[in-house]
Write a protein that binds this DNA or RNA. Sequence first.
DNA 1: ATAGGAGTTCCAGTCACTGGAAGGTCAAGC
DNA 2: GCTTGACCTTCCAGTGACTGGAACTCCTAT
Lengths: 133, 133
Amino acid sequence: MNIGEVAKQAGLPPKTIRYYEDIGLITPLRDANGYRSFRDSDMHKLAFLARSRALGFTIEDCRNLLALWDDQDRASADVRAIAQEHLAQIESKIADLQAIRDTLSNLVHACAGDHRPDCPILNTLETMPSKAD
Amino acid sequence: MNIGEVAKQAGLPPKTIRYYEDIGLITPLRDANGYRSFRDSDMHKLAFLARSRALGFTIEDCRNLLALWDDQDRASADVRAIAQEHLAQIESKIADLQAIRDTLSNLVHACAGDHRPDCPILNTLETMPSKAD
DNA sequence: ATAGGAGTTCCAGTCACTGGAAGGTCAAGC
DNA sequence: GCTTGACCTTCCAGTGACTGGAACTCCTAT
């Protein structure tokens, strides 16, 4: 199967698939004309990668997850550790964003948003407490 | 004032301050020895930038906000529009992350996390529906 | 005089792609 | 047989917002 067809099936752009080969996540064969030739195992890996990336795992996480996936003797604890660490980071990022959202939402509601120059948003950016204070 | 002192007061690393000069957000004067010399106006801008960046505004947003801040005749609507657009993006990102968190949380709880190889996390990454399906 | 802690510039690297140029290959239609 | 157009190839550069490091100068204290 050529890269275009594989891309459709995996839901990844061809560029990304070439990139994944570059960094050693997959190693498709080559046809006589130099075209990449993807086996079922390559397809499976790409689908796995697409899903892992969609869940926000880093490429290095994906590399490790793929290795565990390949390893029939893995301990599920190793997989779980990666996922749990990632989950913790997601939760921390959500908390950060929620704090930002609350502040931002207050500011937007406090601002008249008309032709006049007076603006609580700018006033706040000018004076609000920050790390440095 | 030298860059180190300014960095402390603004809560930004010296490297970042130099970078902000590079991209034209500030233009401090120079002393005879070549050191940057920051005026009060530079300090205010840097504090403004630190706060805006902490709220997740992009550098280009910050550039626009700074320009509006400088403009006594601005319409608060222009400021509000930038903040509102940014707020919308934050909210969308929060929603994305919450969906990921929910999936991930389910997976982590479903996985025994022991020495056995059987792992619902890997099973799901192998087969869960994705964009491509 | 020297040691250290400032400051300076410039270049390279981060992460995970993405765009674009320049060129080779293949299948279909004339 | 030739062209057209869609596909494939490689390689290089750019993204955002810094950050690390090298190589250098400058200032202050001992």
